[in-house]
Design a protein around this nucleic acid. Sequence first.
DNA 1: GATGAATGAGTGTTCATTCAT
DNA 2: TATGAATGAACACTCATTCAT
Lengths: 211, 211, 211, 211
Amino acid sequence: MKKNVPSMVKDEKLIQKRREQMIKAAVSLFKEKGFHRTTTREIARVAGFSIGTLYEYIRKKEDVLYLVCDSIYDEVRERLEEQLKPDITGIERLRQALHAFYHVMDDMQDEVLVMYQEAKSLPRETLPYVLKKELGMAEIFERLIEECVTEGKLRLTEDEIYGAAHNILVQGQMWTFRRWALHSHYSIEEYTKMQEGFLMQALNPIEAKNV
Amino acid sequence: MKKNVPSMVKDEKLIQKRREQMIKAAVSLFKEKGFHRTTTREIARVAGFSIGTLYEYIRKKEDVLYLVCDSIYDEVRERLEEQLKPDITGIERLRQALHAFYHVMDDMQDEVLVMYQEAKSLPRETLPYVLKKELGMAEIFERLIEECVTEGKLRLTEDEIYGAAHNILVQGQMWTFRRWALHSHYSIEEYTKMQEGFLMQALNPIEAKNV
Amino acid sequence: MKKNVPSMVKDEKLIQKRREQMIKAAVSLFKEKGFHRTTTREIARVAGFSIGTLYEYIRKKEDVLYLVCDSIYDEVRERLEEQLKPDITGIERLRQALHAFYHVMDDMQDEVLVMYQEAKSLPRETLPYVLKKELGMAEIFERLIEECVTEGKLRLTEDEIYGAAHNILVQGQMWTFRRWALHSHYSIEEYTKMQEGFLMQALNPIEAKNV
Amino acid sequence: MKKNVPSMVKDEKLIQKRREQMIKAAVSLFKEKGFHRTTTREIARVAGFSIGTLYEYIRKKEDVLYLVCDSIYDEVRERLEEQLKPDITGIERLRQALHAFYHVMDDMQDEVLVMYQEAKSLPRETLPYVLKKELGMAEIFERLIEECVTEGKLRLTEDEIYGAAHNILVQGQMWTFRRWALHSHYSIEEYTKMQEGFLMQALNPIEAKNV
DNA sequence: GATGAATGAGTGTTCATTCAT
DNA sequence: TATGAATGAACACTCATTCAT
């Protein structure tokens, strides 16, 4: 984090505090009007400090966006891992992770939406870093699926595992960027249930076949 | 179209011609630098007329975005329908539509990406109109799936049909907005094949179950 | 000129007119407060148009400085050449040119001062161009001195001619940038007379030696 | 010095120490990027203390410039006087002083240039003080010339002495602000030699006339 | 219908200066 | 005395939009 967004201020504690304020302000503004239509002055004002102070903690407006995306990722991940139950295994574990993830997507709708809509405006240098975090999210599901494969519960190639993990992610995010189409048809539970159903059959659980 | 974007000019033929020029210019610019970083002057210049003329055919910059999105939708739809084979039926027809759609997504990657990324900047009034077009796309697949259900080839509820159709759409668009993660792993054929495989099992074709 | 400072406006006549207004405004402001302390808005306001219009005719603030310097050079040169008497020859001609030059320096004191004080802020790319103009001024005197040498009226090496010409220039400019020390001691006529006297002896006219 | 730039700090020794650090930092920065493009933060940083501390020893950024100019003057003067040979007299002494001065100008090119280019940004109140120092420099040469006149070696009016002294100064400074035109033509020795030659004849030494 | 010069509100960003600690 | 975080006025520059020709 330090590497990606240098600050003029030395006190690390203070940097963290101010950036939290800044991110909170930015997220709420980006939700409302998007990154481009939000001014740095607004961010500073809502964060509770002056424009000069804002620029003590970032170099460019884009840096705020990076900070925001980075923080959203961390929160998504944190919340997800919090809900993951490491004591269960196999298909059940995957199923539970899916539920957890979709719940997080539902809880953090606005944040996730902001991130997906504005990511393209991220400072070029930070893009790989953010994509890596997204890949990291996918890897969580890749590993859960792999586990099932290893245990002989699913029969999938490497590429299928990769694809399935990305499908899971995108179907979770879909809940935010297609809300206009989905929320009128399903509650998050219904939606999750449905996608879970699709997934479980898509992944071709061996028992199913043997019925 | 007339309703959504009024023009100062009366001659309908001319309006259409100018708007075509404008859209072509805008698409190529939006692809390159996005909506916000493209100026109206640039659009006019690339379109081959003056900024004054541009504003004879639109009211606000956002109108260009609407025109662009609308036109991309039309092209996607047109190309898709062109490739649809009405002579086949049932599962096979769905399968073929899926292939066709994913191919169109691949051919029109940049356009689809633009639309997907900039849609949030659409003029408020036109948003419902655009979403309707997206729903229209989904309906194509809904109907194809319904047909299978009616024919007794698939067993799905209304809501599952709706959800499956949206999944199909989003997985097609994914090919554009997740290219950074997908293109290095799959060719469009491989990707289509995989998603087709997942879908076919997800949709739980009756034969499969009866194996 | 076109090459050095591109304009968004096409009409050449208009460009010339607006730039004249701009230069006039800028010179008077630069005189008063220097380049750095003058804002682009002030330049626009004094020039009689808006800030937006200003930027239709330049790209960067520095361009105004270049335009100003360029125009001052042209005026200095024009006025000088206007006063040059090509019908006289030899030492007398040099002497007359010196008087003419010093008079121009006196008439255009503020302009010359601005140019010399702010030249260092010139856009890098244009600096060589401006220095070339200054060398061009020196060449005028180099040629006048050369003529005297050729005619056998002076005995000087190439390097001495070059140095003498630059001395003449700098002593003229001195009248502006040392006014605080000189104007209280001399009128421009007295100053010119004195420097002329020094120069004539410095250049070692052959007759003088032969006395 | 105290009068011109008040400090919050009482300890005179400390003031002197801090200001030396500050001046050294400022000179090196001004050389590189000029007064306006150098920030107070940079000065403090290079000087080795904080921005807060900087402002304990000055009131305004301009004060740094004054301190810098003042210090450069002192150094020029000191170096010059160091090289002056008080044991020789008359024309020879003047000649030697000229050489010494031009050598100092060459050694302190960057500093002199800075002073020359930024003097106009000096705090208004301090300008007279600085000009006085410049006059003081001129006086050195005035006195040397006067001495020759008194000794009957030169025949010059008061005003000519004053003018000649200023010419000497400006021709020395010229070596810095016209380096782009001069350094490619002369070494400092050649330049000095040439200007010495011009001067000696300009000042019309009585022997020369009597040849 | 076409043009393009004019506009000026708005934006990101900087930086001299202050002041609580 | 020293620090450095905070401030906000100020600045250069942009660009959607208008309107006289």
